[in-house]
Amino acid sequence: MPPSSHKTPDAAATARKARFGKLPERVRPDQMIQERPAAAPDPARNAYSADEWLVRYCL
């Protein structure tokens, strides 16, 4: 092969350079996490009443 053929990039090399020629934008660690509750909050779960317990079990 003549030495001039090594200096001219072909279409595949140009496309490869356009796609992989630079690193992707940097992502900060705080942008890598998505926080959401595991389950919907149940208002009846925290509705404990000490008076109701006393009336139900002690009287």
Rank of each mutant, 00 (worst) to 15 (best):
Met1Gln: 08
Met1Ala: 14
Pro2Leu: 01
Pro2Tyr: 01
Ser4Ile: 14
Ser5Glu: 15
Ser5Gln: 06
Ser5Lys: 04
His6Asp: 10
His6Asn: 11
His6Tyr: 14
Lys7Met: 12
Lys7Arg: 12
Thr8Gln: 15
Thr8Tyr: 12
Thr8Ala: 15
Thr8Gly: 12
Asp10Ala: 07
Asp10Leu: 05
Ala11Gln: 08
Ala12Gln: 09
Thr14Cys: 01
Thr14Ser: 00
Ala15Val: 08
Lys17Trp: 09
Ala18Trp: 00
Arg19Tyr: 04
Phe20Thr: 00
Gly21His: 06
Lys22Phe: 03
Leu23Phe: 03
Leu23Trp: 02
Pro24Ile: 06
Pro24Thr: 12
Pro24Arg: 08
Pro24Trp: 09
Pro24Gln: 08
Glu25His: 05
Glu25Asp: 13
Glu25Leu: 06
Arg26Ser: 06
Arg28Val: 01
Pro29Trp: 07
Pro29Glu: 02
Asp30Thr: 02
Gln31Tyr: 07
Gln31Pro: 02
Met32Ile: 07
Met32His: 06
Ile33Thr: 12
Ile33Cys: 05
Ile33Ala: 06
Gln34Thr: 15
Glu35Arg: 10
Glu35Gln: 09
Arg36Tyr: 09
Arg36Ala: 10
Pro37Tyr: 01
Pro37Asp: 02
Ala38Arg: 14
Ala40Gly: 01
Ala40Glu: 15
Pro41Glu: 12
Asp42Leu: 04
Asp42Phe: 02
Pro43Asp: 08
Pro43Gln: 10
Pro43Trp: 06
Ala44Arg: 11
Ala44Met: 12
Asn46Val: 04
Asn46Gly: 12
Asn46Gln: 11
Ala47Asn: 14
Tyr48Pro: 02
Tyr48Val: 10
Ser49Tyr: 08
Ser49Gly: 11
Ala50Asn: 01
Asp51Tyr: 06
Asp51Arg: 11
Glu52Cys: 01
Trp53His: 05
Leu54Cys: 02
Arg56Trp: 01
Arg56Ala: 15
Arg56Cys: 02
Tyr57His: 15
Tyr57Leu: 11
Tyr57Phe: 13
Leu59His: 02
